[in-house]
C-alpha cells in the first residue's frame, strides 16, 4: 500500500494540517508520498521532505497550480493518484474544494472528515453536526479521504529525509482563473492549531467589546473565535467562526463567552479537552457540555479573569 497525501500550503510554508494528515496516513500504514502542487514551491517541498514518516515528495511546480484552482489541481491528483491505495488531504477549505473533484474523476465515493482510522478500509466520521459517529467501509480501488485535523496528533515536522521528485504533468483546464484574495490579518495563533481558544457570541453585544476577549487571549497566548451569531451580527470576520459550517477546533482549553451553545456551534468545539462557559443565563445549553461553568455577567467576569491569569 502506498498513500498519497496532498500537502496544504500557501506556496511558502507547509500548513500544520498537513502534519495531522500524514499522521492519519501513518495509522493506515504503508509508504507515504506527499504531493506539493503550486508555483515556486521549492521551500515547501524541502519542508515536506523533512516531515517524519514521509518516503517521497512529488513536486508539481506550474503557474496553473499557483492558487490551487480545483479545475487544474484535481486532474493532476487524479492522474497521479491512480497508482495509490489512498489519497488523503486535510479537511481545510482547499482540501474540501479539491478532493471531491478528484474522487469523481476516479469514479469512487469519498469519505469526508475522518476522525479515526479503524483499518486500512474502515474509518469513523461524524455526521448530523457531530451528533452521531458513522463507521464507513470503502471497497474503492483508490480510497479518497479528507482528514479532520483535530482527530489526529500531528507527526514531527523534522526528522524525515524523503527524496524529492519533480512531476512534469501540467493540467490547465482554462475554465477558471484567480482574481484576488482578502486575508484577515492576525498576530494571534491560528484558530485550528491553538492550544487555548477564547470565543465570543451574541452576548458580546458589539464588535468593539471583543477587545476584552483579545486582551484575555493575549494574556493566555490564545486564539480568538466566534459563534455564527457574532459573525452574522458583523462583530468579527467570518473566518473566526467555530462550528459545523465554520472551523472545527479541539484545543486544550476552550472558553465560551456569551455563547448559548447551539448544536451547530457545539459541532465545532465539543472535542476540546476542557470547556469553560461564561454566561449570565444559567439555562444556556452550553453549560451541559462545560467542565466549568460560571454564571456571571461577562463584562465583569472577563476583565477579572484577565487580571487573575
Amino acid at each position: 500500500m502506498t498513500i498519497l497525501v496532498i500537502a496544504e500550503h500557501d506556496n511558502k510554508v507547509v500548513a500544520p494540517a498537513t502534519l495531522n494528515t500524514v499522521a492519519a496516513a501513518a495509522k493506515i500504514g504503508g509508504d507515504i508520498h506527499v504531493l506539493v502542487a503550486g508555483q515556486g514551491v521549492g521551500a515547501v517541498a524541502e519542508a515536506a521532505a523533512k516531515i517524519a514518516g514521509v518516503a517521497k515528495v512529488l513536486v508539481a511546480d506550474n503557474a496553473a497550480y499557483a492558487h490551487q484552482l480545483p479545475e487544474n489541481v484535481a486532474p493532476l491528483v487524479a492522474e497521479l493518484g491512480k497508482g495509490y491505495s489512498h489519497i488523503l488531504a486535510a479537511a481545510t477549505s482547499n482540501g474540501k474544494n479539491i478532493l471531491p473533484r478528484v474522487a469523481a474523476a476516479l469514479d469512487v465515493d469519498q469519505i469526508s472528515e475522518i476522525i479515526s482510522v479503524e483499518s486500512a478500509d474502515t474509518f469513523k466520521r461524524p455526521i448530523y453536526a457531530g451528533n452521531a459517529i458513522a463507521t464507513v467501509q470503502s471497497n474503492a480501488a483508490v480510497k479518497v479521504i479528507t482528514v479532520r485535523a483535530t482527530g489526529f496528533d500531528p507527526v514531527a515536522a523534522e526528522g524525515g529525509s524523503a527524496a524529492v521528485e519533480a512531476v512534469a504533468a501540467a493540467h490547465d483546464a482554462g475554465i477558471s482563473s484567480f482574481v484576488g484574495e482578502e486575508l484577515a490579518k492576525s498576530d494571534r495563533p491560528e484558530l485550528t492549531a491553538a492550544k487555548i481558544v477564547v470565543s465570543g457570541g451574541r452576548g458580546m453585544q458589539n464588535g468593539d467589546n471583543f477587545k476584552h476577549l483579545y486582551a484575555l487571549a493575549d494574556k493566555l497566548g490564545a486564539a480568538v473565535g466566534a459563534s455564527r451569531a457574532a459573525v452574522d451580527a458583523g462583530f468579527v470576520p467570518n473566518d473566526m467562526q467555530v462550528g459545523q459550517t465554520g472551523k472545527i477546533v479541539a484545543p486544550q482549553l476552550y472558553i465560551a463567552v456569551g455563547i448559548s451553545g447551539a448544536i451547530q456551534h457545539l459541532a465545532g468545539m465539543k472535542d476540546s479537552k476542557v470547556i469553560v462557559a461564561i454566561n449570565k443565563d444559567e439555562e444556556a445549553p452550553i453549560f451541559q457540555v462545560a467542565d466549568y461553568g460560571l454564571v456571571a455577567d461577562l463584562f465583569e467576569a472577563i476583565p477579572e479573569l484577565e487580571k487573575l491569569v
Partner: peptide, 21 residues
C-alpha cells in the same frame, strides 16, 4: 462505500458550576 454502524458520540462527563472568577 458502506456504512457499517452509527453510534452516539462519547458523552462528556458532567461539569461543575463555579461561584467566582
Amino acid at each position: 462505500n458502506k456504512t457499517i454502524k452509527v453510534e452516539a458520540p462519547a458523552a462528556r462527563s458532567a461539569g461543575i458550576k463555579v461561584k467566582s472568577v
